[in-house]
Design a protein around this nucleic acid. Sequence first.
DNA 1: GACCTTAAAACGAACGTTCCTTCTTGACAA
DNA 2: TTGTCAAGAAGGAACGTTCGTTTTAAGGTC
Lengths: 204, 204
Amino acid sequence: MARVSQAHLDARRRQILDGARRCFTRNGFHATSMQDVFQETGLSSGAVYRYFRGKNDLITAVAEEAFERMRLAFESAGREAPLRPLDDVIDEVLSHVLEEHERESGTDRPGAFAELIVQVWSETLRDGQLAATLNAGYDRMRVMWAELVRTYQDAGRLRADVPTDHVVRALMALVQGSIVQRAVFKDVEVELRSGLRALLSPHA
Amino acid sequence: MARVSQAHLDARRRQILDGARRCFTRNGFHATSMQDVFQETGLSSGAVYRYFRGKNDLITAVAEEAFERMRLAFESAGREAPLRPLDDVIDEVLSHVLEEHERESGTDRPGAFAELIVQVWSETLRDGQLAATLNAGYDRMRVMWAELVRTYQDAGRLRADVPTDHVVRALMALVQGSIVQRAVFKDVEVELRSGLRALLSPHA
DNA sequence: GACCTTAAAACGAACGTTCCTTCTTGACAA
DNA sequence: TTGTCAAGAAGGAACGTTCGTTTTAAGGTC
């Protein structure tokens, strides 16, 4: 094939990213060899190296894509009907993060996305560039959620004598911690909403 | 039999564990080479391999020690005066986890312990044995904290129509998420307590 | 036939580990 | 107390393997 279509190129790139993601999820970024990726994608080294400069580029691409997906889950849940119960909002973020992704890419195990996110976090400790990308993304998340929390505070649904950003961080911590539990306690369906409801309205 | 004292053996073992921990925190378990460990500890390969069977044993030892430290932070905070405000209890766990450790081993950067914990979580995805150890530890934590939460529920400080275990998981998620933030947002002092207070008593 | 994609062999580098040597230690005889 | 010595502890070069990557050659399309 001399000249292939752009659609074909995109499909190949996606094929590589998907295979690499499965490898990385299963074995971690650094315990996965390029040979593993070649085998999982069904492609040879020449093909993979045509689309990615090297292993580190592959790691970065997979990591950024996973993080972006999580960020969008936060944003879309934050954009919906205002002043819903907060436990509903948080639960929706988690549903997006943990389940919708798995429905979409049918090849992954349940919990695979959570496992990948945990690995992305730990990769930031080694890769300053990736850390900068994640920090920028988290800044955007916090700005948007600050507006959301502010509406709750203004409406008297949350006390206003606490810095908005602190509340945002606490809410984000709830989601991040749930991702950790989903990744580490593989067998258990993490049921956050009811526990969160008990915390948010302790005197029902 | 001419041997060195047990104290000497223990000290050497600790020297290796400390050096390895610093390497692992800085570069991750798998991007750290044994050569790095030799250099950081100031010992030769022969010495290190006398105390540990191989790299994987070293990883396991460092990971289990870090996790055990976190588990003890949960337990000690849970044992103190009952029915304190929940945000105080959570904050104390975090103080133990994030700061006391750093005061103790003066060689580490701030946030180093949080970074290590994140790496331990991600290592469980690759090492089933370590995953089993962590799951057992988390079970113990949840049992103990279930008793704590139950006292709050019985005292009417938390609604009782929610399974105790769900509340425990939500509280643990708060701490775990804060650890994530501490590890990834290096520059920021995560201020969880006030944000948590706003969530716990929204109508102050 | 020209050109681009893919496959696969092959490369140097770096890895974890082993092995042999050297140094150090503590017990014990004198 | 001191000198001797066996054995444990540490050092460091070298090993075979596997890594990520490059190069080379075949295959296919226009």
